[in-house]
Design a protein around this nucleic acid. Structure first.
Lengths: 114, 114
DNA sequence: CGGGATCCGCCTAGATACTG
DNA sequence: CAGTATCTAGGCGGATCCCG
């Protein structure tokens, strides 16, 4: 049994999926893997996500210590930047291999025969 | 826009997550990464999954061409073995890096500070 | 600009019972 | 043994409006 942030997982692989799973978290991490982005910059990279969902996913990633949120202004218009924490950076190879496999599939590098 | 098996994804990372995402698929692939297993052997490796869920996940993995299902007997008791296809084997590095990160976290290899 | 509040549909997955 | 059938719940994520 594996534990992380108060949650229990039956397998080391499911622990990781508990952190980066779901429809959007890997996409967020993919875009943050090499740079800092503002909220609206992330939205432009992910046009099909809703504001609420992006907001929620960013919050859970922050709570898990994967990303950090930095606010630069106290009055509107707000400027908020998101970036990986040092802990989050340890996920870069994982996210990269996930992204690479997706690219390989669409490039039809792999044969789909048994 | 990325396409795979009739589904569209906004990012190469989300394509991969569409195939291996969800609560159980990476766990199945983790256990099948180096060996063939029967249905009940898989259940023993994953005691907390229900029969129905395991069944459904195996079916979608088969439909996506990731695993193959081989039936050895025509009359009960049935013998069915699951293993990775050649295409599924291309996912091994991805699953392995996912599993490795989970292990690293519980071994506290990484510091959780910003 | 960067969200929060509210409402809601749908899909994932669980529980349990049953079958070829 | 290896599933299917049925019912159900919980939560993920979408749509829309609102606010500092």
């Amino acid at each position: 049994m594996y534990k992380f942030k108060g949650k229990e997982y039956p397998c080391c692989a499911s622990l990781t999926m508990g952190v980066i799973g779901g429809k959007w978290k890997t996409v967020i991490l993919f875009h943050l893997r090499d740079k800092t982005l503002r909220y609206n910059e992330l939205r432009k990279e992910m046009p099909s996500v809703t504001e609420r969902t992006l907001s929620l996913q960013l919050k859970t990633l922050e709570e898990d210590g994967i990303i950090k949120r930095k606010v630069y202004t106290s009055k509107p218009p707000l400027k908020v930047e998101y970036s990986l924490t040092d802990f989050g950076k340890t996920l870069i190879p994982v996210v990269q291999s996930i992204a690479d496999w997706g690219v390989s599939v669409v490039e039809e590098k792999y044969e789909m025969i048994d």
